[in-house]
Nucleic acid binder design. Structure first.
Lengths: 184, 184
DNA sequence: CCTATCATGTAATCCGTTACATGATTAT
DNA sequence: ATAATCATGTAACGGATTACATGATAGG
């Protein structure tokens, strides 16, 4: 019952196990890979270690399969469920982090010449386009009537971001150089 | 000259110092706070420790002010400049992380009843609206003719995200319950 | 059969974060 | 004068990431 801070990873694991009833770390890995993980990545190693932490906090319980493959199933405890529901209901205002390396580069584009900026913008536009298509194909692989399902939200928001990013970078790639540098 | 991996924080520090010529950690802190930091946060403690790391890697040089306040100024070395330009020019396709706790909650909204989802959506809409206004005011505080300056890119993209998020959550808050649960 | 890839972990490192701490300015 | 905030760090912890490792399964 060690005290430990609940991180986003904790809530992810708690939530996935609550939804599934029980799950092995590999189940978690797959579930993450095809949904949230596309937008907010959680390395698989954590999906093996985090449940152990949560067991030590009394929020999960481990049920090792006695026969067959001895899989490690994790189940949520009532304390775990309570913690999860508390987090879900709490109106907490946490901050959003948009960690986009392309934007960080853009922030320093004054260090690049015009050509360099063009190259960056073109590459970013392409990358986001590709990503957009990947997410779209993922979204399409879902039954259409489920597309509006709230749990697909992260994916949908990811799509919105990628769409915006494609336009954003296209715009930058197309921008005319500032007047002052017209005649260098 | 220890080998060390260059993280986004490294590039941030290198870039800011390259732009400024030289800077104290506090200069970095301020520069971050009013621009990128709004979208991708970098705790101030790192802005004090990271330059030290970079010095040990030979990418920065420290110049302690001899008179007055003995400020610790950091200057970029030619190796540092090279590393920075390499990173800026490299076409590397890194992944974007959108770490939005609201979206993580939404992912688990099947665990909430309709009222709970409404509450979540309303709270998120409000939070994003507020954030949007904060970013807008920040953007306005910049000279208008500089608004399109590439280095304001992260802020602009942040604005696009927040705008999309407001609509996104409004949409969710407004959604009618699925037909199947009409007559419970 | 042999080779990929799947499935399942463990270990070590290190970066990111939180917490603590304190002298110097500025405002009241 | 005193309180508040600015400016400037340091220390410690722990979670996140990377790297390593290996048996099982399936495809060719």
């Amino acid at each position: 019952m060690a005290e430990l801070r609940l991180t986003p990873t904790s809530h992810l694991v708690l939530g996935l196990i609550a939804l599934a009833g029980r799950a092995t770390p590999y189940d978690l890995k797959r579930a993450v890979a095809e949904r949230v993980g596309q937008v907010w990545s959680f390395p698989h190693a954590q999906l093996y270690t985090e449940p152990v932490r949560l067991v030590s906090a009394g929020l999960l319980r481990e049920e090792r399969e006695s026969g067959g493959r001895h899989r490690r199933y994790f189940v949520i405890t009532s304390e775990g469920k309570a913690a999860l529901m508390k987090w879900l209901s709490e109106p907490r205002s946490e901050t959003v982090e948009i960690r986009d390396p392309g934007l960080l580069r853009l922030f320093f584009s004054d260090l690049l010449d015009r050509r360099g900026l063009q190259t960056l913008a073109a590459a970013q536009q392409r990358a986001h386009q590709k990503r957009l298509e990947a997410l779209e194909s993922l979204a399409r692989s879902t039954a259409p009537q489920l597309y509006r399902e709230p749990s697909l939200g992260p994916l949908r928001m990811g799509l919105l971001y990628e769409k915006a990013a494609v336009d954003f970078w296209r715009d930058i790639a197309a921008a005319k150089p500032p007047a002052k540098s017209r005649k260098h």
